[in-house]
Amino acid sequence: MKFSLLSIFVVLLFSGAVQAQDLKNVQVLPFKNAREIVPYMKEMAKDLGVKCNYCHNMKDKSLDEIKHKIITRDMMKMVKGINENFMTPLKMDAITCWTCHRGSTSPPYNINEKP
């Protein structure tokens, strides 16, 4: 018991250090912790038809070493801009990744194809 209390004291002694952030390197999304961001990530993964390791280093998901994550971040900025500047002012439903991707990493139609 004494050892337990001493150990707890040692841990709390170090707890005065600068507190770690719960989420690191989140630049676009407004979420603060895993409980908020995971449901969003689940939906996005389904919209793109991928698993988490398509964009993330699973040992440290905050890293930007996989190019898909960089591209996705730019895509998020695009979606956010469209919703803020057009969809919301026009009182229309917000777009999501699904709007174009339909469960695939590439949209199922070529935007340059003429009808």
Binding site: I8, V11, L12, F14, S15
Partner: peptide
């Protein structure tokens, strides 16, 4: 039961 402190 335990308590832990991360050092990022």
């Amino acid at each position: 039961g335990w308590i832990s402190k991360e050092f990022s």
